[in-house]
């Protein structure tokens, strides 16, 4: 059902691109073993996702980014072609786990921080142990949980 909602969100037409662009994936040399497994790709309009090959969607789990307006079960669209700058929201691998954090640069020190006043201020990792996976371009909230279909 969720799939259907996404399809309805974006108008079909010239303004719609598929993420990623699955061009004619025919191989000149070896037939691709993936040929049998290609599926409809997730579609996002070009003005939201200007660089399809570097654009990935992530589920968000947890509320530690509440003050950034990102909540549990939201969808974050990550663009790996963007370079993280001060105050970027990023997906980062920290101790073998993917997390969403605020990237803060203070002089020579970069930090990854929560955005939730309920969490202690010391809950901040140094970037030395972390690797930034990509920069969050935007996030999506579902507001339709209790809405029914009008007929």
């Amino acid at each position: 059902m969720k799939v259907r909602q996404i399809v309805e969100l974006c108008a079909e037409g010239d303004s719609t691109v598929r993420v990623p662009i699955l061009g004619p994936a025919l191989c000149a040399g070896f037939p691709s073993p993936a040929d049998d497994f290609l599926e409809g790709s997730l579609e996002l309009p070009r003005w939201l996702a200007p660089n399809p090959p570097a654009t990935f969607a992530w589920n968000i789990s947890g509320d530690s980014m509440r003050d950034a307006g990102i909540f549990d079960r939201d969808l974050a669209v990550v663009d790996r072609s963007l370079k993280a700058a001060h105050r970027s929201v990023v997906v980062a691998a920290i101790d073998g786990q993917m997390s969403i954090k605020r990237f803060l640069v203070d002089g020579n020190v970069a930090r990854l921080s929560f955005e939730n006043p309920d969490l202690p201020a010391f809950a901040v990792e140094e970037t030395g142990e972390a690797e930034i996976w990509g920069v969050v371009r935007f996030s999506i909230r579902w507001h339709i949980a209790r809405a029914g279909l009008v007929r």
Binding site: P20, L22, A25, G29, P33, A34, E39, P52
Partner: peptide
């Protein structure tokens, strides 16, 4: 997970096309 590999391959080739006017996808 050929669905994933095929998709990642398509992404990589999209980057190649930014660098060269002529790209032959030889295999996945």
């Amino acid at each position: 997970n050929y669905t994933l590999y095929g998709d990642m391959s398509a992404r990589a080739n999209a980057v190649y096309r930014d660098f060269s006017p002529a790209v032959e996808i030889y295999s996945i």
